[in-house]
Simulated assay, not measured.
Amino acid sequence: MTVHRLAVLALSSLLLAACDGGGDPVEQAMREASSRNHAATVKEGTVSGPDSHGADHAVAAAAGPMAGDQAFAASEAEMHRRMAAATGETIDQAYIAKMIAHHQGAVAMAEVALRDSRDPEVRRMAEAVIAAQTREIAEMRAWRPAAAP
């Protein structure tokens, strides 16, 4: 398994963990695929313990972003900029504003994966992220605060 594929799988896992939607079947399928891929990676021996070549990956990460990371740099920076700028008078309004920005970032990263990945499973997951996050953005934009009691 290539370093690029490992980076995409790790990014997918982080994205899914950050956006855990509970019972959403698309997200559940993506979590299961990520778990299967991780298990296969460990079984293949491409993810290693501290006594093998795994330290090489830590050194490379400390040296700077890898090519796979660089592909996402612009979309990550824009997501963080939007999240920092998103505000609301109440915790509810701020949460919705920041989550819309966060989901827009997920869509942008999935679009990078669709543009650059040739792995059918990664492409399928990216398409699922775009569909789910776009639907959730629309749901959050439609949200209105509950009337005060």
Rank of each mutant, 00 (worst) to 15 (best):
M1K: 07
L6E: 13
L9S: 04
L11R: 07
S12I: 06
S13W: 01
L14M: 06
L14A: 07
L15P: 03
C19G: 12
C19I: 07
G21A: 15
G21L: 06
G23F: 05
D24R: 01
V26E: 02
Q28P: 01
Q28N: 07
M30R: 01
E32D: 12
E32I: 02
A33L: 00
S35R: 05
S35W: 02
R36A: 11
R36E: 07
A39I: 03
A39D: 11
T41K: 05
V47F: 11
P50V: 13
D51S: 14
S52G: 11
A55I: 13
D56P: 02
H57R: 14
H57Y: 09
A58I: 10
V59S: 13
A61R: 10
P65H: 11
M66P: 07
M66F: 02
A67E: 12
D69G: 15
D69M: 08
D69Q: 10
D69E: 15
F72E: 09
A74R: 10
A74C: 02
S75F: 07
E76V: 05
A77Q: 05
A77N: 04
E78V: 02
R81L: 09
R82C: 11
A85N: 08
E89Q: 13
E89L: 10
I91R: 13
D92Q: 14
Y95I: 00
I96F: 15
K98E: 15
I100F: 15
H103C: 03
V107E: 08
A110M: 00
E111D: 12
A113I: 01
D116V: 09
D116K: 01
D119H: 10
P120L: 03
E121H: 08
R123D: 04
I130Q: 01
A131H: 10
A131I: 03
A132N: 06
Q133F: 08
Q133G: 05
T134L: 04
E139W: 12
A148L: 09
A148Y: 08
